[in-house]
Simulated assay, not measured.
Amino acid sequence: MSATLHRLPGHTPSLDPMIGLVARDMDHVNAVIVERMRSDIPLIPELAGHLIAGGGKRMRPMLTLAGAQLVGYAGDRHHLLAAAVEFIHTATLLHDDVVDGSDLRRGKRTANIIWGNPASVLVGDFLFSRSFELMVAGGHMRALEILSNASAVIAEGEVNQLTAARRVDLPEERYLDIIHAKTAALFAAACRIAGIVAERPDAEEVALDAYGRNLGIAFQLVDDAIDYTSDAGTMGKDAGDDFREGKMTLPVILAYARGGAEDRTFWRDAVEGRRTADADFAHAVDLVRRTRAVDDTLARARHYGQRAVEALAIFPDSAIKDAMIEAVDFAVARAY
Rank of each mutant, 00 (worst) to 15 (best):
E172I: 09
Y256M: 07
Y211H: 09
A66Y: 09
A299C: 09
R58I: 08
I178S: 06
A284R: 00
V222F: 07
I179W: 04
A164S: 15
H6R: 10
T90D: 09
T297S: 08
F128S: 01
T265D: 07
E326H: 02
H11W: 02
L8H: 03
N160H: 00
G236M: 13
E172R: 14
I226L: 10
A188Y: 05
P118L: 14
F128H: 06
R200L: 02
D16Y: 11
E35P: 05
F132M: 14
P118Q: 10
R58P: 07
G49F: 03
N149H: 06
M235C: 02
D286E: 11
G124A: 03
M62K: 12
L162R: 12
L312Q: 05
A198F: 03
L170Q: 03
I320S: 15
E133C: 08
N112T: 10
V332I: 07
L21A: 15
G72Q: 13
A82S: 10
R268E: 13
A83G: 08
I52D: 12
G273T: 01
D227P: 09
I325A: 06
A143C: 13
N117Q: 09
L215C: 08
I196W: 11
T163W: 09
D280T: 01
D322N: 12
L144S: 13
G212I: 13
H11G: 05
A91Y: 13
R300L: 04
A91P: 09
H140G: 11
L21W: 06
M62S: 13
G101Y: 15
P316Q: 10
F187I: 08
A152Q: 15
A327K: 00
A279L: 03
L8T: 07
T92V: 03
H303W: 07
M141L: 09
T64H: 12
L221G: 03
I320M: 15
A323N: 02
D269E: 13
S131F: 06
G67R: 14
L147V: 08
L47S: 02
D295H: 12
V22Y: 15
I314V: 14
R307T: 01
G72Y: 03
T265Q: 09
F330L: 07
N117E: 14
E133D: 12
L65K: 02
R77N: 10
V136I: 14
